[in-house]
C-alpha cells in the first residue's frame, strides 16, 4: 500500500483525535482575534435597540442543553439590553427542556444587570413556561394566551401577574424575539404571529439553520438573525459586554482550519490518484 493509499484509508479515530485537540487547545490557551460584525447580527441588534421604552415584547426561549452554550450568552445579553431600556419581557417555550433553560438565561441575565435596573418577576418580566403542540400550540398561544396557560412557569396563577393584566394575544406585543436554537421553529413565529398579527420579528438560530431563513430576511418578514455562537459573540460585542460567546467563537478557529485543510488534502490526494488511474 502506497503512502497515498494509506493516507486515504486513514483510521477515522486519528481524525477524531486531531479534531479534539484542535477544538480543546484554544479553550485552554485562548487567543482573541478581531472579528467583523455580520449584517444579519447588526440588523437584529439595531431592531432590538429601536424598541421604545415601556413596550412589552414576546420572547420564545428555544435553547436546549446542546444549543445553550451557543445562544445562551446572546440571549442573556439581549435580556440585559431590553430590561435596561425598560422594556417588559414575556417569555414562553415550545419545549419542556427549553422552558427550563430559559430560566437559566433569565437568572444569568439578572445577575449581569447593572444596579438600578428594575427586573421584578411578574412586573418587568414573566416566564409563561412550556406550551406544547408545536405550531398549533404557538397559534393557540398567539390567539388567546389564557386558553393554553393558567399559570406561569413558577406556578403563579396568570390572574396574579401584574404584567399580564392587559395582555392576552400576540397583537399586544411590540415585537417578537424568537430564540429558536435548533428547534427549526422560526417559521412557526412567522406563520402564526408575524403574518396574522403583523408583529415585527427577529430571532436566533443555530449556525446551521441561518441559510434556511435567509429568504424570510430578504423578504422583510424577519429583521436580521443571530446565528449561533458567532452571532451571540457579535451581540455581546455590540453591547460592549464581551463574554463567553466571544471566547467560544474564537475557539472555532483551529477546528475550522483543520477541517478546511483536510478537505483540501482529501481533494489533492483524490486528483493525484485519479491522474494515476486509481481513484473511483
Amino acid at each position: 500500500m502506497s503512502l497515498m493509499d494509506k493516507m486515504l484509508a486513514l483510521d477515522q479515530r486519528i481524525i477524531f483525535a486531531l479534531m479534539f485537540i484542535a477544538l480543546a487547545f484554544p479553550i485552554l490557551s485562548p487567543v482573541i482575534l478581531p472579528m467583523n460584525i455580520q449584517q444579519y447580527s447588526r440588523d437584529s441588534f439595531e431592531f432590538a435597540d429601536s424598541i421604545p421604552s415601556g413596550s412589552v415584547v414576546l420572547i420564545e426561549g428555544g435553547l436546549g442543553a446542546a444549543t445553550y452554550p451557543q445562544g445562551g450568552p446572546g440571549l442573556e445579553v439581549q435580556i440585559v439590553h431590553l430590561l435596561s431600556k425598560d422594556i417588559k419581557l414575556v417569555f414562553f417555550s415550545i419545549g419542556t427542556e427549553t422552558a427550563a433553560w430559559t430560566v437559566t438565561a433569565i437568572d444569568n441575565a439578572l445577575a449581569k444587570l447593572p444596579s438600578g435596573v428594575a427586573a421584578e418577576n411578574g412586573v418587568n418580566w414573566v416566564h409563561m413556561g412550556y406550551v406544547p403542540g408545536g405550531e398549533s400550540g404557538v397559534a393557540a398561544f398567539a390567539n388567546d394566551i389564557r386558553s393554553v396557560k393558567t399559570e406561569d412557569h413558577f406556578g403563579t396563577p396568570i390572574g396574579q401577574i401584574p404584567l399580564m393584566s392587559d395582555i392576552n394575544k400576540a397583537s399586544d406585543f411590540a415585537a417578537l424575539f424568537w430564540w429558536g436554537g435548533s428547534e427549526g421553529s422560526i417559521p412557526f413565529g412567522i406563520r402564526q404571529i408575524v403574518t396574522p398579527f403583523g408583529v415585527p420579528m427577529t430571532g436566533m438560530c443555530t449556525t446551521n439553520e441561518v441559510p434556511n431563513y435567509t429568504p424570510y430576511i430578504n423578504s422583510g418578514q424577519m429583521i436580521g438573525i443571530i446565528g449561533g455562537v458567532r452571532g451571540s459573540a457579535e451581540y455581546e460585542y455590540l453591547m460592549g459586554m464581551p463574554g463567553l460567546a466571544l471566547g467560544q467563537a474564537m475557539a472555532t478557529n483551529f477546528g475550522g482550519l483543520l477541517w478546511a485543510l483536510l478537505v483540501v488534502l482529501g481533494n489533492v490526494l483524490y486528483f493525484v490518484a485519479r491522474r494515476e488511474g486509481g481513484a473511483k
Binding site: 403542540g133 398549533s136 390567539n143 388567546d144 386558553s147
Partner: peptide
C-alpha cells in the same frame, strides 16, 4: 380557541 387548547393538551 377551545379546540386549540385541546390540541396542546393532547400533544
Amino acid at each position: 380557541v377551545t379546540l386549540r387548547s385541546f390540541v396542546t393538551i393532547i400533544s
